[in-house]
Design a binder for these strands. Structure first.
Lengths: 108, 108
DNA sequence: CACATATTTCACTTTACAGTTATATGATCT
DNA sequence: AGATCATATAACTGTAAAGTGAAATATGTG
């Protein structure tokens, strides 16, 4: 699954936001939080974490029985880049159009 | 369907890119192009366009029997903002950590 | 070693979505 | 009006993803 699909799911997007805000969290923390936030079970969250892991959005390190999850900022940068590129490219065209229209208004 | 889910699909992302590059296109143009690019039928593309419309990513205007599709840059800006926000927030934390580690290295 | 804790994986069900063909809608042309 | 073109919708199918409870795996503790 690619990066876009990974963050398409609201639960996973919420997890990403949580990790960005808190820095890191154990799988148990996240399972607890998503339970209260979305009412889903612990295995459900575990599977979401797997998807995020395979998409490269998060990394996990083992600490005894706990798995500590952290965000990898690079894939997010890719998304931001893509969106900004499409956004800006088209915006310049839009600006050109607006300007063209206003010159038409001056000299009708 | 929300903006993220709309651009999660590769066909729709391709359509967005095409509109950003070309400025505008008719439904027929896009149906033709996605046909050669992905091998899907005209109704399939029509449904993708519907999703993009309902997500607010594109607008369509009627010109005789044709529907002309254009990109609305605002939702893309939202995506870029979101991704940049998560990315940067965590990056500052990462920088702080890196700096912390290097000071530890100096004075062990 | 037995037991508790943390997390993942398995087997299964339900739901959502992309795709298809066929049909409907609406505008243009002769 | 009838034919045709452009696009959308309907009805249906196959597949994938998200959810669940139960079991497996691995680590720490009395």
């Amino acid at each position: 699954m690619d990066t876009f699909q990974a963050v398409a799911d609201p639960v996973r997007r919420w997890i990403v936001e949580r990790l960005a805000a808190g820095g890191e969290a154990t799988a148990g923390d996240l399972a607890q939080l998503t339970r209260t936030e979305f009412g889903i079970s612990q295995p459900a969250t575990s599977k979401h974490l797997k998807v995020l892991r395979e998409a490269g959005l998060v990394t996990s390190t083992v600490s005894a029985q706990r798995r500590i999850y952290r965000l990898d900022p690079r894939p997010l940068a890719d998304i931001a880049d893509w969106a900004t590129r499409q956004h800006q490219y088209w915006n310049t065209k839009l600006d050109a159009l607006t300007q063209h229209l206003s010159t038409l208004k001056e000299k009708p």
